[in-house]
Amino acid sequence: MAGPPNKRQKRDDKQEGQMPQKKFYRQRAHANPFSDHDLTYPETPEAMNWGDHYPSYVATVPAAVPKDDPVATEDGNDYGVPRMTKQVEVADIGCGFGGLLFALAPKMPETLILGLEIRTSVTEFVQEKAKALRVQHSPESVPGGYQNVSCIRANTMKFLPNFFAKAQLSKIFLCFPDPHFKARKHKARIVSTTLNSEYAFVVRPGGRVYTITDVEDLHRWMVEHFEAHPSFERVEGEELEGDEVLKVMTTETEEGKKVERNGGTKYVAVFTRLEDPPWP
């Protein structure tokens, strides 16, 4: 028990506004997405308190207090959470140490960006880093001042609809996901026919899903499954020109930098969310 508590204490040693050190937040890379863990998640997206994550975007009008009647009312504002001026629109699922989040934040200063990560320590690191960056940079020095980026611990394979309403997101990133090499583990992959329906639910028509991996097999798997899903279509060639976030994704993720160092190959794919078909 000597090792880990030490690591914990060292995390707290830093001054406010100082960047957290990655070495104190490492955690093994594989989590079982089927286990219950000890997760916290809102009952519904309306019950999620985003104010803690994006304090600059809390609406100044005080939110409605919870009513005595336990019955949910029509306007959905009775969860006692602050009203926000903006909603999260970009989600990085499995954000790891948040390289992509912090690179994207100044490029999309008007958009709320959220990282979702299943590992507790890694989530904490990203949260600390966001706090530190907010102290170090004002919105004048860096667009957005990192007020538009945050991270939560979540198992998105189970609880994505608890965080996001229908068509809330414009972009989802799936960067260097766990490849789950064994065939019998394929249900644990972050991309599957059945999970793609959930991504389609939270992404608005015209929105995009970006994938990147250094495992060719997984790349083919992801492409195959998104292309087979009637709600998605692959975007290729010139349609990708001018998509700046694509460049950022290819170069800025922590895992992507590691692949580059080791001379690996990066496989990228982009998919767009199509309109739902009319009822038969």
Partner: peptide
Amino acid sequence: PSDTKRDDNGTEAMDVEDDL
């Protein structure tokens, strides 16, 4: 929770069979 405990709770070895 100490870190080790969290690891036990939050993550699992790759070879542990996943089942619902």
